[in-house]
Design a protein around this nucleic acid. Structure first.
Lengths: 252, 252
DNA sequence: GTGTTTATCGTCAGGCAGACGACTATGATC
DNA sequence: GATCATAGTCGTCTGCCTGACGATAAACAC
């Protein structure tokens, strides 16, 4: 059959972002408050339309920068490590997921170190870091009396998928370092695993595992004592991106 | 900002399929010959436009049925196991990936047992199972003198991503059984792993691993001798979908 | 029967993870 | 300044799993 522009229905294509970070020993996601219908006043994941001349990854990186000021870490430049990790997550295209029109959303997952404060177009009250358990639970009230209404659209599903991706991916990759500042201690990295998995890990076995895996961590020579207690060695993420054998997640 | 239909550019949304199977000890993918420009006469992955009232998974299942006659195996009905496995792979939306217009393609991965013969709208000469190495290699000639021109569009990238997904996913899941008929022997399952990974596995260790993992394989009681040699026990896939600890892929 | 092929069971050594003891180096408290 | 609490780091031991590989079993071809 020849090419016929009327043979296919037009879609709007958006990118939605699951931006995760670890704050106060809890896995948190970035949520923005919707200022317009539908779901006006409800919390949602940040996102926006893909522009006509833009790649999907570019659109996601642009939205991330607009919402958080974060630049994306370019894997081709391992030296400059002060950016977030960004990867495509999955695509959601249910008819009716947006009541206005047919929207296909390409969700992306971003992992970032702990940040000072979110900004959404300069309006801080319309963006916040919230523990993922709080965003996903139905009913009840959040920490600061915020009514825990479900996220807008199908964003609870998207967030849930993003969290699951992060939880499984830190098992077999060095992705957990994306939650850490450029230099970090073994204990800080362990607390990332504990927050993301929601479990406790043995500090001694964890230390043996991460320092014994070649190429995973590179000591920088410095030490720090910002956690109290004996000063800890500082490390940077090594070149190894795959962790083999993987870090084992406890059975719960 | 209020809702403004002119604020976003229209996209065409398609689903493309990476349909994998194991034939004659080789991992093969379904390819269809393009009958119209662009890339007329070249091989491509099967796919098509998503309809206006269709979910992405529905569209992928419909395309799969149209191209192969396969129904999709519904995970909610584990008893009836005569369908293919289908999952979303990734989404490709480079501007310029289709010279006609802006097309976002949601690629899906399908795994099927060995099938008699492909059919593409009843025309067998326009569809074939080809070893993935043949489809991905640049230049040279395929087995039957077919010029090994690169796949159309960015389909080489999509196929490559799909193969990589399949290779890694059979490590930690029971997905390899999707390449097998409803009842199969340990040896047949091992040959699936060998074909997908392109390695040789020790039959004795493999047998110990798969029969020793609870819930992975369920003996049906029957035996078969279709491979020659001593009759082998027949199994069905057990309820366990996750393989823990995973099957280890040799270092090459 | 003999040889070939495939399936299945066993044995053994090495590696890794979980459990946990011991020691070190800092800041806080009395 | 001594003591305590906290966190980091190094070891040890045991059990499980894997890779390598020997041995046996049950079919078919000749």
């Amino acid at each position: 059959m020849p090419y016929d522009p009327s043979a296919f229905p037009p879609f709007a294509v958006t990118v939605d972002l699951v931006v995760l970070t670890v704050r106060r020993h809890a896995l948190c996601a970035l949520a923005v408050r919707r200022g317009e219908p539908p779901f006006q006043g409800r919390w949602a994941l940040p996102g926006g339309f893909v522009r006509a001349d833009e790649d999907l990854a570019q659109a996601a990186a642009r939205e991330l920068a607009e919402e958080t000021g974060l630049r994306v870490h370019d894997p081709a430049v391992p030296a400059q490590d002060n950016g977030a990790h960004l990867e495509q997550l999955a695509t959601y295209g249910d008819p009716g997921r947006d009541p206005r029109m047919r929207v296909v959303s390409v969700a992306h997952l971003a992992l970032a170190p702990d940040l000072p404060a979110p900004r959404a177009g300069g309006d801080a009250s319309n963006a916040r870091w919230a523990p993922v358990g709080e965003l996903l639970q139905q009913g009840g009230y959040g920490r600061d009396g915020e009514a825990a209404a479900p996220l807008a659209f199908d964003h609870a599903q998207i967030l849930s998928d993003g969290v699951e991706r992060a939880r499984s991916k830190i098992e077999y990759s060095s992705l957990a370092t994306a939650f850490c500042p450029p230099e970090f201690t073994v204990g800080e990295l362990r607390r990332v695993y504990e927050a993301v998995w929601g479990v406790g890990l043995d500090p001694r076995n964890f230390h043996r595992k991460v320092t014994g895996t070649p190429g995973f961590l590179v000591p920088t020579g410095g030490t720090t004592t910002r956690q109290g207690g004996r000063p800890a060695q500082l490390f940077r993420a090594g070149g190894a991106t795959l962790l083999n054998p993987p870090m084992l997640r406890p059975e719960v």
